[in-house]
Amino acid sequence: DEVTIHLGDKTIRVDGLDKELLEILKELARRGADEEELRKEIERWER
């Protein structure tokens, strides 16, 4: 499953996201997290 996250004018595509992680990323994005913060969160989950 590829998920596309839209952040204002930026788009991040991620393969096979965990549903819980997806919810966390959506919440972070709502709070104004930037792409770098979201990537760090994704990397934390992948470990």
Results as ranks from 00 to 15, higher is better:
residue 20 E to D: 12
residue 24 I to N: 04
residue 28 L to K: 04
residue 4 T to Y: 15
residue 24 I to S: 04
residue 28 L to R: 01
residue 16 G to S: 11
residue 7 L to R: 02
residue 17 L to H: 06
residue 44 R to W: 07
residue 15 D to S: 12
residue 23 E to D: 11
residue 14 V to S: 02
residue 44 R to C: 08
residue 46 E to P: 04
residue 45 W to T: 01
residue 23 E to R: 09
residue 21 L to K: 03
residue 25 L to Q: 00
residue 40 K to N: 12
residue 24 I to P: 00
residue 47 R to E: 15
residue 36 E to A: 13
residue 7 L to S: 04
residue 13 R to I: 13
residue 36 E to N: 07
residue 9 D to Y: 04
residue 37 E to Y: 06
residue 22 L to F: 10
residue 40 K to C: 03
residue 19 K to G: 09
residue 20 E to T: 10
residue 29 A to D: 03
residue 33 A to L: 05
residue 25 L to N: 00
residue 23 E to M: 10
residue 7 L to T: 06
residue 12 I to Q: 02
residue 40 K to E: 12
residue 31 R to F: 09
residue 27 E to T: 06
residue 47 R to Y: 15
residue 41 E to A: 12
residue 23 E to N: 09
residue 27 E to I: 06
residue 7 L to M: 08
residue 2 E to D: 12
residue 16 G to N: 13
residue 3 V to M: 14
residue 26 K to M: 14
residue 23 E to P: 02
residue 2 E to I: 14
residue 23 E to V: 09
residue 12 I to G: 02
residue 46 E to C: 06
residue 26 K to Q: 14
residue 23 E to K: 12
residue 13 R to F: 14
residue 35 E to F: 07
residue 25 L to P: 00
residue 1 D to A: 14
residue 8 G to T: 11
residue 15 D to G: 06
residue 10 K to Y: 14
residue 12 I to K: 00
residue 5 I to A: 02
residue 25 L to E: 00
residue 23 E to S: 10
residue 39 R to L: 15
residue 1 D to Y: 14
residue 43 E to H: 05
residue 8 G to D: 08
residue 34 D to F: 03
residue 33 A to M: 05
residue 2 E to H: 13
residue 2 E to P: 11
residue 41 E to P: 00
residue 47 R to M: 15
residue 37 E to R: 11
residue 37 E to L: 06
residue 6 H to C: 08
residue 5 I to M: 06
residue 17 L to V: 12
residue 21 L to I: 05
residue 30 R to S: 13
residue 32 G to R: 01
residue 1 D to W: 10
residue 2 E to K: 10
residue 6 H to W: 09
residue 4 T to I: 15
residue 19 K to I: 11
residue 3 V to D: 12
residue 45 W to K: 00
residue 34 D to M: 07
residue 43 E to C: 07
residue 14 V to I: 11
residue 3 V to C: 14
residue 44 R to H: 09
residue 27 E to G: 05
residue 25 L to K: 00
residue 47 R to D: 14
residue 8 G to N: 11
residue 47 R to T: 15
residue 21 L to Q: 03
residue 11 T to L: 13
residue 13 R to E: 12
residue 7 L to I: 15
residue 28 L to I: 03
residue 35 E to G: 03
residue 14 V to R: 01
residue 44 R to A: 12
residue 15 D to N: 12
residue 37 E to D: 13
residue 22 L to S: 03
residue 28 L to S: 02
residue 18 D to A: 12
residue 6 H to S: 13
residue 39 R to C: 08
residue 38 L to G: 00
residue 1 D to V: 13
residue 4 T to A: 12
residue 29 A to K: 07
residue 41 E to L: 07
residue 42 I to Q: 02
residue 30 R to Q: 09
residue 47 R to G: 15
residue 26 K to V: 14
residue 21 L to H: 02
residue 29 A to P: 00
residue 3 V to Y: 15
residue 33 A to C: 03
residue 30 R to F: 13
residue 45 W to D: 00
residue 17 L to Q: 04
residue 22 L to A: 08
residue 18 D to V: 09
residue 19 K to V: 09
residue 12 I to A: 01
residue 40 K to H: 06
residue 14 V to N: 02
residue 27 E to C: 08
residue 39 R to A: 08
residue 42 I to W: 05
residue 38 L to H: 00
residue 10 K to V: 15
residue 28 L to D: 00
residue 40 K to Q: 13
residue 16 G to R: 09
residue 43 E to D: 08
residue 35 E to L: 08
residue 9 D to N: 09
residue 25 L to F: 01
residue 35 E to P: 05
residue 13 R to H: 12
residue 2 E to R: 09
residue 27 E to L: 05
residue 27 E to Q: 05
residue 38 L to Y: 05
residue 11 T to E: 12
residue 23 E to C: 04
residue 16 G to P: 04
residue 38 L to R: 01
residue 17 L to N: 06
residue 34 D to Q: 10
residue 3 V to F: 15
residue 36 E to K: 08
residue 37 E to W: 03
residue 11 T to N: 12
residue 11 T to H: 06
residue 15 D to K: 08
residue 25 L to V: 03
residue 45 W to P: 00
residue 37 E to I: 09
residue 5 I to H: 04
residue 47 R to H: 15
residue 21 L to F: 05
residue 30 R to T: 08
residue 25 L to Y: 01
residue 43 E to R: 03
residue 46 E to Y: 14
residue 4 T to L: 13
residue 45 W to A: 02
residue 19 K to T: 10
residue 46 E to T: 07
residue 6 H to D: 13
residue 35 E to Y: 13
residue 8 G to K: 10
residue 20 E to Q: 13
residue 44 R to K: 11
residue 3 V to K: 08
residue 21 L to W: 02
residue 29 A to R: 05
residue 14 V to F: 15
residue 19 K to M: 09
residue 46 E to Q: 09
residue 41 E to T: 12
residue 11 T to C: 09
residue 13 R to T: 14
residue 26 K to G: 04
residue 32 G to M: 01
residue 5 I to Y: 01
residue 14 V to W: 12
residue 20 E to S: 06
residue 16 G to L: 12
residue 27 E to W: 03
residue 18 D to S: 12
residue 13 R to M: 08
residue 10 K to G: 11
residue 15 D to Q: 11
residue 37 E to A: 13
residue 28 L to E: 00
residue 25 L to D: 00
residue 16 G to D: 10
residue 13 R to Q: 14
residue 33 A to F: 07
residue 10 K to A: 13
residue 1 D to C: 09
residue 7 L to F: 12
residue 36 E to W: 10
residue 39 R to V: 08
residue 18 D to C: 02
residue 26 K to P: 00
residue 44 R to V: 07
residue 24 I to K: 09
residue 14 V to A: 06
residue 25 L to A: 00
residue 39 R to Y: 14
residue 22 L to I: 15
residue 32 G to S: 02
residue 29 A to F: 09
residue 45 W to Q: 01
residue 2 E to A: 13
residue 41 E to G: 01
residue 45 W to I: 01
residue 7 L to P: 04
residue 32 G to A: 01
residue 21 L to D: 00
residue 16 G to C: 05
residue 29 A to Y: 07
residue 28 L to H: 02
residue 39 R to T: 07
residue 33 A to S: 05
residue 11 T to P: 07
residue 21 L to Y: 01
residue 44 R to G: 05
residue 25 L to T: 00
residue 32 G to P: 01
residue 30 R to W: 10
residue 44 R to D: 09
residue 9 D to L: 05
residue 8 G to R: 03
residue 40 K to S: 10
residue 45 W to Y: 08
residue 17 L to E: 02
residue 32 G to N: 03
residue 13 R to V: 14
residue 4 T to F: 15
residue 19 K to L: 11
residue 6 H to Y: 06
residue 4 T to W: 12
residue 26 K to H: 09
residue 16 G to Y: 10
residue 18 D to W: 05
residue 45 W to V: 01
residue 18 D to Y: 04
residue 17 L to R: 04
residue 2 E to S: 14
residue 36 E to T: 10
residue 16 G to M: 12
residue 28 L to T: 00
residue 42 I to D: 00
residue 10 K to Q: 12
residue 42 I to F: 03
residue 26 K to E: 08
residue 32 G to F: 01
residue 36 E to C: 04
residue 37 E to N: 03
residue 35 E to M: 05
residue 38 L to S: 01
residue 6 H to A: 09
residue 30 R to K: 14
residue 42 I to T: 01
residue 20 E to M: 10
residue 24 I to G: 01
residue 16 G to E: 10
residue 3 V to L: 12
residue 20 E to F: 07
residue 22 L to Q: 12
residue 27 E to A: 05
residue 9 D to C: 04
residue 6 H to Q: 15
residue 12 I to N: 03
residue 24 I to T: 07
residue 45 W to S: 01
residue 40 K to R: 12
residue 27 E to R: 03
